[in-house]
Design a protein around this nucleic acid. Structure first.
Lengths: 164, 164
DNA sequence: GAAAAAAATGAATAAATTTGCAACCAGAAT
DNA sequence: ATTCTGGTTGCAAATTTATTCATTTTTTTC
């Protein structure tokens, strides 16, 4: 009967939603509805909510006090377990300096270790600074170096026994 | 009242929240509140909402019809695009550690920010050390971190309001 | 092609989350 | 100590998002 547009409705909406989210900053569903409207696509907030769930969309804090929609898949799942395991072996020493942790590694590996620590995303660790074979792990105020060492042990199991 | 000074309240709450979210599946803020309660940490849902925003937590569709809270591995996808022209936008956080100022930036930008600070030539700033996405601004002896923050505000107008 | 089954949608509603505001608290400045 | 200042919080209200239910649309099956 109708060889024409059959059920493109849903699909084109999904595509439009993705385009909107990828191209501009949107921070509420109502906002998306409005933009869809301008593109000639109409749907209710209920449907949009379901669509976002299907697309795997998340509302992330933008770090500036607001939120924005984004795709989960863009926030690459971390964990390169094996690489992490190898990294334990490049660590040569761990000492405490001025309430911070100083780690010596094989030449060229400091940055990899630092990135691994950063990716672990522990709040207690304010940050890391890496040179070529040395990195500094800086605890937040009121966080003890000992606590940080425990965290490091979690990230790099066996690390302390190896380095004494 | 409490004889002890408690500034750790906030920090320990953030840490607890992170632990909960990393270790178990939670799908609503009320649920997190309950678990915090069992750990002896009490706060309202409003505060939790704000904490989640600060921590960069998102509610992601779990692909099974439900949702779960999770951390966004790498913050701020689009900021990067806009950031190329304005260094202020690559600055993600500024905190005080050990009397120094630790600045986190988008990946790869720490050095640019450090150079900008160095070039500004303020006597109060003894020097900077930059890694890939983190830099340390070291005040001269007897120069307060707060003062350094003021200087930073001069170099990067709007910096604090954005990262606070 | 018609009936049955499955999927999708809107309206209304419930549930969950965010925010404005005033109070509060700790630290810095005076 | 007293005042300022900036940040944190709870409360209540506002906003935003998810879901229930009834209905419609599409797909499947016979």
């Amino acid at each position: 009967m109708q060889p024409e547009c059959i059920k493109m409705q849903r699909i084109s909406r999904l595509i439009a939603i993705e385009n909107i989210i990828r191209s501009e900053k949107v921070s509420s569903q109502e906002e998306i509805i409005r933009k869809l409207g301008k593109m000639g696509i109409k749907c209710t907030q209920a449907t949009l909510s379901r669509s976002l769930k299907q697309l795997g969309v998340v509302k992330v804090p933008d770090g500036r006090g607001g939120y924005r929609y984004s795709f989960v898949s863009d926030h690459v799942p971390q964990i390169q377990a094996e690489a992490k395991y190898d990294l334990v072996n490049v660590i040569r020493s761990i000492i405490e300096v001025k309430g911070m942790i100083l780690i010596k590694t094989s030449p060229g590996y400091a940055n990899s270790v630092a990135i691994t620590i950063d990716n672990y995303g522990r709040y207690e660790i304010a940050g890391t600074i890496a040179g070529d074979d040395t990195l500094l792990v800086i605890p937040r105020d009121n966080v003890s170096p000992a606590h940080v060492r425990n965290i490091l042990e979690m990230i790099f199991p066996g690390i302390h026994s190896m380095t004494g």
